[in-house]
Design a protein around this nucleic acid. Structure first.
Lengths: 186, 186
DNA sequence: TTCAAATTAGAGTGGACACTCAAAGAGTCA
DNA sequence: TGACTCTTTGAGTGTCCACTCTAATTTGAA
């Protein structure tokens, strides 16, 4: 793949894959549907991607990376910053965030590649939340901060998940509620 | 279906369906696999169930009902009781709870029958949690209690969801952490 | 302009899927 | 026992899936 046309086609295919995974999930996304939406025939798809899974993995990786768009803040973010960034991601990138929730939160199911990436992502995320917590409450033990951070991250995921069922759901309000609860304790 | 043999076969099929949905999710559960696990041939399956979906809906309904095994407590349960009951369900009925989380929490995906049932279940559940909250904090406004209850229920779902990825995950600890946070605020 | 490489077209393949059906077998009554 | 219904058998059906292949077309560097 070196010509301009190929790169454009690749982007159209990834866009179609993104939409379809966001809408229908992993199993509901077929090559035929991707090709129709991208205006491409199967031959072109397989000229650019080795398999359906490769295209999907690319899109999911994209979504997982997008959750944390500015890793440079590492070490300075507050818990509020982290939660706000997540809410912003959910609200400003609806398609990517649906992909993230469907696959990153609910589980990849089959693909070990995705499962591994997902688990690592979760651990890193919990680590960042825990660090922010410790910065705010230095007397918290490491293990307690870690567990509280994990509770918060998973609760946020649960809230984000509900938006797939109810798109009108007020994610920001509920995220703030969680944050306030956590703050009240520490 | 009136003979004893048919009823037994029906139970074996539902058991197999339950295991497979818990393990592989909706799309990963095939008629062939159900029949093999149940020791039955496709003809027998379709003698007892009109479709694959019917068997799955039966199992999911079962799982949703099992989340709240004692509705007679209505009006007397505390928030602690409700959370404890959920944790007990997750720990004592691992298969059913995996079905519940996979379908009831993560979304039915295709079946409108399941989606409707799921949404109603969620609303009822939030209502019960909100009522318990108001009993504990009578000065809470209805709408605030409702929103806080929904936050709690969804956070619990997020935590339960993580058990599908990590079976060793300590659901009870994290559920308690959420509860303590909520209590600290009210 | 030439030409090899990249891209596209689109019919075709094999396999897995949900589901069907006719006939044989078993259960439950009188 | 006879007769009727329920249950099981297991090969078979059509559909949809991911993926392949060859030939035609387009690209862009020399």
């Amino acid at each position: 793949m070196r010509y301009k046309a190929g790169l454009e086609t690749r982007e159209r295919i990834l866009g179609a894959t993104r939409s379809l995974v966001a809408e229908n999930g992993l199993d509901g996304t077929t090559i035929k549907a991707i090709c129709q939406l991208a205006g491409v025939l199967p031959g072109s798809f397989y000229n650019l991607f080795a398999s359906k899974e490769q295209a999907i993995v690319t899109v999911v990786r994209e979504a997982i990376d997008a959750v944390d768009p500015d890793p440079d803040h590492h070490g300075t973010d507050t818990l509020q910053d982290l939660v706000a960034a997540y809410v912003r991601f959910l609200e400003e990138s609806p398609e990517l965030s649906r992909v993230y929730i469907r696959i990153g939160v609910s589980g990849a199911g089959s693909s070990p590649e995705l499962t591994g990436r997902m688990v690592r992502h979760h651990q890193e995320r919990v680590g960042r939340f825990a660090a922010a917590m410790k910065r705010q409450s230095p007397y918290l033990s490491d293990s307690l901060a870690e567990r509280r951070a994990e509770t918060l991250v998973l609760a946020l995921n649960g809230i984000a998940l509900h938006r797939i069922i109810d798109p009108a759901f007020d994610v920001a309000w509920h995220a703030r509620a969680l944050l306030d609860d956590a703050a009240a304790v520490s």
